[in-house]
Design a protein around this nucleic acid. Structure first.
Lengths: 400, 400
DNA sequence: GCCTCTAGTAAGGCTCCTTAACTTTATCGG
DNA sequence: CCGATAAAGTTAAGGAGCCTTACTAGAGGC
C-alpha cells in the first residue's frame, strides 16, 4: 500500500523477518528509548527506566551509547520533591535534517527542518517555469539556497520529500496525471533533482502530503482516520489512517476527480465540477460578468451578490456529494477542506453540512484546513522526517 | 482502525512498546520460526537456520521448546541430494481450534477449524428465528453440536468470530444497523452467547468477513487492496488491504448503502436501489408479472425475457456506479462481487464492465466471488484463526 | 572402505540484561 | 547543623540466550 516514489524507506516487513540476535536487541532498546523521548519529551534515566520497564543500568548504558552517537543530548535538570536532582535527556534535533518541497502551479515552496520538526529555513518562490528544464532548475537552486540559508551542512540533510500534483510512477520514473504543470510529466526529472542535490528523494501526491501535514501539525492531529479534500486548480483527496497514508493499490487512492457524477448540466467529471474553475463557470451561468476568479466570486458572495451566492451554493452541493461518497466508503471521523478554497471555507462550511444532512446519515466532522497553503509543504517535511529519523538512527548506530 | 467487537486481540502496538529483554528475544525467535513454518510449510532445522539467519543450535533449541509446548511436531523426513536425511518439522494443527459463525437472515452457519485452517466440523441450519432469544439459543446449540461433532475438547476452542449484518457496538454491547434480523439489535446478546459457549468472541460485519474470506481462501489472495461487494438482502462492502481489514474510524467503512445516489426515479438510498429487492422492483417496472424473486428475474433474463434483461441492465448500471465510487476513493486492484447475486454474476459482469468504461478511467479487475455463500463463514474462521494462533502461542509458551 | 556432503549436537565465549547493593545528592525535621 | 529519608544514578555479580567452532551422525558415490 505504501507506494513510494523512489528510494523506498527501509522495508519494515523485511526487517521484522530478521532474526533477533543480540545486536538487534541492543538497537531495539535504544530505539525504544529514543522514540519515548521524542513522544513524551525530555526525561531522566530513572524515569525512562520506570516507564519503559528496562532496568536502570540498561537505560544508563543505552543512553550513553545514544549520546556518543550524537542522537541524544543532556537537556537541563529537574529537581524531584526530594532527592538528588535528575539529569534530563532529549533527542538532539541537530542529528540530522529533512527537506520538504511543494511544487505547485503557482508557487514553489521549500523548507528544511531539524529532527524535532522545527523548520530552520524556508523559501516561497513564484513558479513561472513553463518548461521542464526551467522547473527542475528552479527546484534545485531554491533548495540549495534554503539549505545554505539554514547554515546546515548539505550532507546533514538526510532525506527529502517532494509534493506534486499527480502520481509518481517509480518504474517509468516520471510523474503522471499532472495536467496543470507544463512539462512536468517527462521522465527522469526527479532523478535529475536527486542527483544534483545529492539527497535521497521521495515523490508523493500533493493531496496526500497535505493530509499528512494536517495530521502532524494541524487539525487532523489525533484522528483515527481522516480525509483531506484539496480543492484548487484540481481536485484531490488524501487519506490518513493511524498516522499513515492510505495510498491504494497503485497510489491512486483519493483520486476523487474520477468520482461518477451526473449533474443536470454538462460536466461529466467531478473534478471539472468542483475545482476553482467550476465556481467561476457557475457564477457566469447565474449571470455574473467581468474578469472572474474563484476568489472574486467568493468575495462577491460574502458581500451578498445573489449570483455569486448561488454559485457558492452549487459548489457546496458538489462538495457535499464528494464528502458523502468518501464517508460511505471510508468512514472517516474527520473531513478537512483545504486548497485554494481554503480562504473561503467559512462560506462553504454551513451549506456543505446542510446538504450533507440530506444526502447521508453519516456525518463526519468537517473542518477547514488549519495550515492553509502550507499543508503540502509541511506534509512533505513531516514525511521526510519520518524516514530521516530512521536513516539517522541507522547511520549513527551502525558506526558504533 | 481495528474496531473489534469485544475481546480485542492482544494490542500489537502496546507489545511493541515493551522492552526487549532476553525472554522476549527467545519468544520472538520461536515466533519467527513458527510463522515461517506456517507460511512455507514443513522444513528441517538446517533449512530454517539458512532461511531465517539464525544459527543451527539456536534453531534446534527453539524448535525443541516449541515441540515441548505442543506447537510444533515432526512431520516426516526429506533426503537431500546427498548427505544425511533431514527431519522435517511442521506446526501442529491440533494445538488449538477456532470457531466461525455466520448469522445470516436465511441461514446460520457454524464451523470449527484447526490451526492449519482446515475445517474439521461444520453445520448449516435454516434460521427461522423470529426473536432474539430464539436466535441466540439456535446459535449456542448449533455451535455446541458442531464442537461435539468435531471431537475436539471445548476448552481447545480458543477463539471465535461471529459475522452478522450491521456493526457491533462494543460500548453498548449490541449490534446496530442490522435491520433484517428481527430482535438481533438487543443489547447483551453476544455476551450471552459468549458466556454460554465459554469461548472468547469477536463480532464483525458480514461483508468485512466475506472480504477476508475471499482474501484467505478465495479470489482475493495476493491482492494488495481489494473490495468485496456483498449484494443480497442488503448492500455492503468489505475492504482488505495488505491482508488486514480496513474498518474506518467507527467500523462503518464500506457501508456503501449510504452512497449518495440520485436516480431519475425514486430511490434515495443506494442500498434500496441495488439490493435483491430492487431487481424485482425494476423487473416489475418493466412489466414482469407474477411472484418474483431476484433469482427468478435473473433466470428469466438468461432465457431472453426482455423485461428481465432490462432489469438486469439497470442493476448492472447501479453496481457500476458503486464500483466507480469505490475505485475513485480507494484505488483497489480488485473488486469482487458476491452475496445473493453470486449465482448471477455471469450475467452482470459484462454489463458492469461496460458501464464502468463510461463512468471512470479507473478500471480495477472485477471478479465474481469464488466462495459464494461460504465467504462470510470462511472469513469468520480466518479471522478467528488469526487471534487463535496468537492466543495458543502465548498460552503454551507462557507455561514453559 | 574411504571420501564427500548434509544434518544435527556439544562446548565455550560473548553480549547484554537484571538484580542487588552501594554512592551521591537533595530535602526535611529537629 | 546533623542525621533520616528519598530519589538518582553507578558498580558488581549473575544469568539467559545467541553465535562460533568443532565435532558426531548418517547417506551416497567411487
Amino acid at each position: 500500500m505504501h507506494e513510494n516514489g523512489a528510494m523506498p524507506a527501509s522495508d519494515v516487513v523485511e526487517q521484522q523477518e530478521q532474526p533477533w540476535n543480540r545486536r538487534r536487541l541492543r538497537s531495539a532498546n535504544e530505539r525504544l528509548l529514543l522514540d519515548r523521548l521524542r513522544a513524551h519529551g525530555a526525561a531522566s534515566r530513572a524515569q525512562l527506566a520506570r516507564e519503559t520497564g528496562l532496568s536502570k543500568p540498561t537505560v544508563s548504558s543505552a543512553l550513553a551509547s545514544l549520546e556518543a552517537a550524537g542522537l541524544v543530548r543532556e537537556a537541563g535538570t529537574r529537581a524531584p520533591e526530594r532527592g538528588r536532582t535528575a539529569v534530563l535527556y532529549a533527542p538532539d534535533p541537530a542529528a540530522g535534517y529533512a527537506l520538504g518541497v511543494d511544487i505547485g502551479r503557482g508557487w514553489l515552496r521549500v523548507a528544511v527542518a531539524d529532527l524535532d520538526g522545527t523548520v530552520v529555513a524556508r523559501a516561497d518562490v513564484r513558479n513561472r517555469a513553463r518548461a521542464s528544464a526551467a522547473l527542475t532548475d528552479l527546484v534545485v537552486t531554491t533548495a540549495r539556497e534554503v539549505i545554505a540559508d539554514s547554515g546546515v551542512d548539505a550532507a546533514e540533510v538526510v532525506h527529502g520529500v517532494v509534493g506534486t500534483p499527480g502520481v509518481y510512477d517509480g518504474e517509468q520514473r516520471r510523474v503522471r496525471y499532472a495536467m496543470h504543470l507544463p512539462g512536468w510529466g517527462r521522465a527522469g526529472l526527479v532523478d535529475r533533482i536527486r542527483e544534483e542535490l545529492g539527497v535521497p528523494l521521495e515523490v508523493h501526491n500533493d493531496a496526500n502530503l497535505a493530509a499528512l501535514g494536517e495530521y502532524t501539525y494541524g487539525v487532523g492531529a489525533g484522528s483515527r482516520l481522516f480525509a483531506y479534500i484539496l480543492i484548487g486548480t484540481g481536485l484531490g483527496m488524501g487519506i490518513v489512517g493511524e498516522g499513515r497514508l492510505f495510498t491504494g493499490a497503485h497510489g491512486l487512492a483519493g483520486e476523487i476527480g474520477f468520482l461518477p457524477w451526473q449533474d443536470r448540466q454538462q460536466p461529466e467529471r467531478l473534478e471539472d465540477a468542483v475545482s476553482g474553475v467550476a465556481v467561476v463557470e457557475a457564477a457566469r451561468g447565474f449571470g455574473m460578468r467581468g474578469r472572474l476568479t474563484a476568489k472574486a466570486v467568493f468575495d462577491a458572495a460574502r458581500q451578498g451578490h445573489p449570483a455569486a451566492a448561488r454559485a457558492v451554493e452549487v459548489e457546496a452541493e458538489r462538495i457535499a456529494h464528494t464528502v458523502a461518497a468518501a464517508a460511505a466508503v471510508l468512514d472517516p471521523d474527520l473531513v478537512v477542506l483545504g486548497g485554494g478554497v481554503g480562504h473561503s471555507v467559512d462560506l462553504l462550511l454551513g451549506p456543505v453540512r446542510e446538504r450533507l444532512r440530506a444526502l447521508t446519515p453519516l456525518r463526519p466532522r468537517i473542518a477547514p484546513s488549519r495550515l492553509g497553503a502550507d499543508a503540502v509543504l509541511l506534509g512533505a517535511v513531516a514525511t521526510a522526517l519520518d524516514t530521516a529519523r530512521d536513516r539517522v538512527f541507522e547511520r549513527r548506530t551502525a558506526g558504533t
